[in-house]
Computed example of a mutant assay.
Amino acid sequence: MILFELVPYDLLRVIWWVLLGVLLIGFAATDGFDMGVGALLPFVAKSDTERRVAINTIGPVWEGNQVWFILGGGAIFAAWPPLYAVSFSGFYLAMFVVLAALILRPVAFKYRSKREDMRWRETWDWALFIGGFVPALIFGVAIGNVLQGVPFRFDADLRMTYEGSFFGLLNPYALLTGLTSVAMLVMHGGAWLGLKADGPVAQRARIYGQMAALATIVLFALGGLSLWAFVDGYVITSAIDPNGPSNPLAKEVAVQSGAWLANYETYPVFMLAPALGFLGAIGVFFGIRTRYEGLTFVSSKLSVLGIVSTVGVSMFPFLLPSSIEPKASLTVWDASSSHATLFNMLVVTVIFMPIVLAYTAWVYKVLWGKVDEEAIVRDQDHAY
């Protein structure tokens, strides 16, 4: 027996669907609070010292957190090549906007404190705001478009044609999911600042974090109701071989009202995802009121986990549906790499993922502790 045949192909496809979710959740749960802090920066910090307090809560960890974004993109490229090709080509301009905003962030971190001039520093502080707010919004908008279906098709040789536009992405439902994403990450950033900052910055962060938690609950509920009432889902209507070749055109797909909610009847355990989304945000709202900082941040992470997971479990087995040619929709069963590739990647992941997690945990342990104004003033050579 060939080694990779030890794990069935259909099981590997599901495992990599789960691992892709883990990477995306890891990105949202770690780099998400970095973006949330950036989006909150103009509101929670009024002086240069206060802004340095906020910035230095994420200064030691933001680079490591951003690695989850790179890992997610790499996993899509290697495990789901058609998904990578369609999404990165179709969303090219949106990706460019995200990358431009993300490029602003490291430049702002490195340059803002190089000069004492306040206009110089305020300019870079607004760059940090853009680097936090814009990606949060665009990622949410992208999710909204994925749930509605993306305008692409394949020809007989599986060459992709995308028929959408950048401004076409900015439709009402996508903007709703974009605002949900912003509220979720601002809530996450507020919970982080409440845990890591001290003084006026932490006090203001608690206020904005509580407001964002309430907004997350309301917007997440509106998103779910809108998904049920206005957004059609996709259903595979033909026989499909979970161990078959990766050919998206070898199936039939129908567009049906309420189809995205059918998985919750088929797999009741999936209800845990939206439940965690709501309960986590509720935990943040009341955790901030009771000043349980650690519990508040854990609740925020659980809310992020639940909200991001809700998208994945609602769509399963679809990865990227096509709005103009439903049969071309990409699914777990027909958009993956080969059996051998998925197995080899799994072996590498099993070896290196625990190392990455252990190192990340060690970094957070070493760099733990609150950042206050006294430390910033006393140590002018502080990180940022």
Rank of each mutant, 00 (worst) to 15 (best):
V150C: 02
P42T: 08
D155H: 01
S303W: 03
W16G: 11
E293N: 13
K114C: 05
F133H: 05
I25E: 12
T180V: 08
L279P: 13
W362A: 15
L41T: 11
V150N: 03
K46I: 02
E50Y: 06
I70V: 15
N65I: 02
I288W: 02
P82Y: 01
G164T: 15
A197H: 05
M211S: 12
M35I: 14
V308I: 11
L41F: 03
V350Y: 07
F4I: 10
L128D: 01
V37I: 12
F220M: 15
R289L: 10
V332W: 04
V150P: 04
Y111C: 06
D379F: 07
A213D: 00
I282C: 03
R119K: 12
G178W: 04
G224K: 00
P242S: 00
V255F: 00
L227P: 11
K301T: 15
S314G: 01
F352N: 05
L346Q: 13
G32M: 01
G190Q: 05
G72K: 07
F69H: 14
A191G: 08
V350M: 14
T360I: 09
F109D: 07
N344C: 12
Q148R: 04
Y9I: 14
A259H: 04
R378F: 09
S246D: 03
K370F: 07
F297K: 05
A197C: 08
G72N: 07
